[in-house]
Amino acid sequence: MKLSIQINEGPYQHQASDTAYQFAKAAIAAGHEIFRIFFYHDGVNNATRLAVPPRDDRDVSAQWTALSKEHDLDLVVCIAAAQRRGVMDAAEAKRQGLDADNLAEGFRISGLGQLIEAGIQSDRLVVFGA
């Protein structure tokens, strides 16, 4: 089955991103295709590369980066939600005249249309959080 995933909550405060991560791994292991993973609301905070969790805790952002690398996943961060919350890639930071960017490897920033398209193209859209 072709699946897409929407993640609506940030890391650590809420378990939604962890559960979505486990779900994505299990779905891939079961032979399903992940068309896209879309980060919305505070879910965009999963895409920061500047989080430094304690050593004995999981690194939510790094987990996504690794899974993306391993399975060539399309991790999309909503640009409108990301701009509100200060999640920027280098190009967007430059465009906004900011002195820093923080988007983790494996993520890309794009529009809400990517979420709608994921719904159209996938057999199922599974929403985590909110």
């Binding site: 919305y40 609301h41 409108a80 939600a81 529009g111 809400l112 249309g113 979420l115 709608i116 398209e117 159209i120 909110a130």
Partner: peptide, 19 residues
């Protein structure tokens, strides 16, 4: 919370997709 506002933003963008 911001859920209602950002839900409305999805609806408005999604409207362009003729669904």
């Amino acid at each position: 919370t911001v859920y209602a506002l950002e839900a409305l933003e999805v609806v408005l963008i999604g409207a362009a997709f003729d669904q």
